Simulated assay, not measured.
Amino acid sequence: MSRTIYLNGSWMPEGEAKISPFDRGFLMSDGIYEVTCVLDGKLVEYEGHAARLQRSARALDLNLPVDEAELLVLHREIVARNGLEQGMIYLQLTRGAADRDFIFPPMDTPSTLFMFTQAKDVLGNPAAEAGISVVTVPDLRWGRRDIKTVQLLYPSMAKMEAKAKGADDAWMVEDGVVTEASSATAHIVSADDRLITRDLSHALLPGITRASVLELAAAHGITVEERAFTVEEAQAAREAFITSATNFVIPVTSIDGARIADGKPGPLTQVLRALYVDTRRAAAI
C-alpha cells in the first residue's frame, strides 16, 4: 500500500509526488533534513529535532514555510495518515527550484518541504543485543558538519566501505581522532567508567540522542567527559557505543577487527539504552 506523503502544502500518495528537476536540493545538495522517531504512534524527542531544524535553516538562510505550531501538526498528521506505530518521519527542506547558479536565488523563492514515514521496529533492533562492528575511514566531509545537510554521499560511501570489509558501520577519523559514525554519534567508556564523547564543534552534528544520553548518564552518577579520543583509545576502552534518533543506544563490539573488552555489549551501554527508551517513550508527544 502506498504511503501518504506531504509535499509543499499537499497530502498525496507517494507515487503522485513531483519535484522540479531544477530543485536546488537535487542540483546543489542545497537542503537540510531531520529524522524524528515514532514510538507507540507518538513523537520521540520532537522538540530537539524541531529546534535543530530551525538552527540548520538559519545557518543556511533557508525559509521554513511553516511555523512551529504547524510543523508539529504536520508531524502528528503524517503519523495518523500512515497509521505509524513504530518507525520514523523524514523531513527534507530545500531552497526550492531556481535556474542553476552558485549564488542563492532571492529569499522569496518558494522552498520545498517534503515529509514521509518509514515503518521500523526500533525497539526490536537485534544490534541492541548483539552489538555492531565498525571500521575506521578518513573523514572527508565538508567543514560544517554541525548543520544537518542533505550532503550524505560520503557517509554513504563510508558505510559501503564498512560493508565491503564485513563490518556494520564506519567511524570517521580526522587528525588522528574520531569524529562520528556514518550517521550516529560515537562514544566510549574508559577503564574507570567515564563516558567519553567528542565535544561539540563544526566537526560533528549536535546529536539530539547524544544530548539526552549524556544528561541521563550525569543524572545517574556517571562521569561524562566531552573531548576527542583516538582510535587506539577506543579499541582499549571498556565499552563503546553509538547513539542516534532511531537506533537509540547501540553497542559497538569491535573496531577495525580489535575486540572491545570481551566482545560483548557492555553493562553501562545496556543501562543507558534502557534508561533512554523508558524515559523518552514516557515523554513522547
Results as ranks from 00 to 15, higher is better:
residue 105 P to Y: 06
residue 106 P to N: 10
residue 106 P to W: 01
residue 107 M to V: 10
residue 108 D to K: 04
residue 109 T to H: 00
residue 109 T to C: 00
residue 109 T to K: 05
residue 110 P to C: 06
residue 110 P to M: 09
residue 112 T to E: 01
residue 112 T to Y: 03
residue 113 L to K: 05
residue 114 F to M: 13
residue 115 M to N: 10
residue 116 F to Y: 13
residue 116 F to D: 03
residue 117 T to A: 01
residue 119 A to N: 06
residue 120 K to N: 05
residue 122 V to E: 12
residue 122 V to K: 07
residue 123 L to P: 11
residue 123 L to A: 08
residue 124 G to S: 13
residue 124 G to R: 09
residue 125 N to D: 15
residue 125 N to W: 09
residue 125 N to I: 02
residue 126 P to F: 03
residue 127 A to S: 12
residue 128 A to D: 00
residue 128 A to M: 09
residue 129 E to W: 00
residue 129 E to A: 15
residue 129 E to T: 03
residue 131 G to I: 05
residue 132 I to V: 14
residue 132 I to N: 05
residue 133 S to D: 15
residue 134 V to D: 00
residue 136 T to I: 05
residue 136 T to R: 05
residue 138 P to G: 07
residue 138 P to E: 12
residue 138 P to L: 09
residue 139 D to Y: 04
residue 140 L to N: 11
residue 141 R to D: 09
residue 141 R to A: 10
residue 145 R to S: 15
residue 145 R to W: 01
residue 145 R to Y: 04
residue 145 R to I: 03
residue 149 T to D: 09
residue 149 T to N: 12
residue 150 V to E: 11
residue 151 Q to N: 15
residue 152 L to M: 11
residue 154 Y to A: 07
residue 155 P to V: 07
residue 158 A to H: 02
residue 159 K to C: 02
residue 160 M to S: 12
residue 160 M to A: 14
residue 160 M to I: 15
residue 162 A to R: 06
residue 163 K to G: 15
residue 164 A to H: 10
residue 165 K to I: 00
residue 165 K to F: 09
residue 166 G to H: 02
residue 168 D to R: 15
residue 170 A to C: 09
residue 171 W to M: 13
residue 172 M to S: 03
residue 173 V to F: 06
residue 174 E to M: 11
residue 175 D to Q: 12
residue 176 G to V: 13
residue 177 V to S: 15
residue 178 V to F: 07
residue 178 V to R: 02
residue 179 T to F: 01
residue 179 T to A: 11
residue 179 T to E: 12
residue 179 T to L: 05
residue 181 A to Y: 07
residue 181 A to F: 06
residue 182 S to E: 11
residue 183 S to I: 14
residue 184 A to G: 08
residue 185 T to R: 04
residue 185 T to G: 09
residue 186 A to T: 08
residue 186 A to K: 10
residue 187 H to V: 00
residue 187 H to K: 06
residue 188 I to Y: 01
residue 188 I to E: 00
residue 189 V to S: 06
residue 190 S to L: 05
residue 193 D to M: 12
residue 194 R to S: 15
residue 195 L to A: 05
residue 195 L to C: 04
residue 195 L to Y: 06
residue 196 I to Q: 08
residue 200 L to P: 15
residue 200 L to D: 03
residue 201 S to I: 03
residue 201 S to C: 02
residue 202 H to Y: 06
residue 202 H to Q: 14
residue 202 H to F: 04
residue 203 A to H: 03
residue 204 L to D: 00
residue 206 P to A: 13
residue 207 G to H: 05
residue 207 G to Y: 04
residue 210 R to H: 07
residue 212 S to P: 01
residue 213 V to K: 10
residue 214 L to Q: 09
residue 215 E to M: 12
residue 216 L to C: 03
residue 217 A to K: 05
residue 218 A to Y: 06
residue 221 G to E: 06
residue 221 G to A: 03
residue 222 I to K: 00
residue 224 V to K: 10
residue 225 E to K: 01
residue 225 E to S: 12
residue 226 E to Y: 08
residue 228 A to P: 00
residue 229 F to V: 09
residue 230 T to S: 15
residue 230 T to D: 12
residue 231 V to H: 05
residue 232 E to H: 04
residue 233 E to T: 03
residue 234 A to K: 02
residue 235 Q to L: 08
residue 238 R to C: 02
residue 238 R to I: 00
residue 240 A to C: 14
residue 241 F to D: 13
residue 241 F to N: 08
residue 241 F to K: 03
residue 242 I to Q: 12
residue 244 S to L: 02
residue 246 T to I: 14
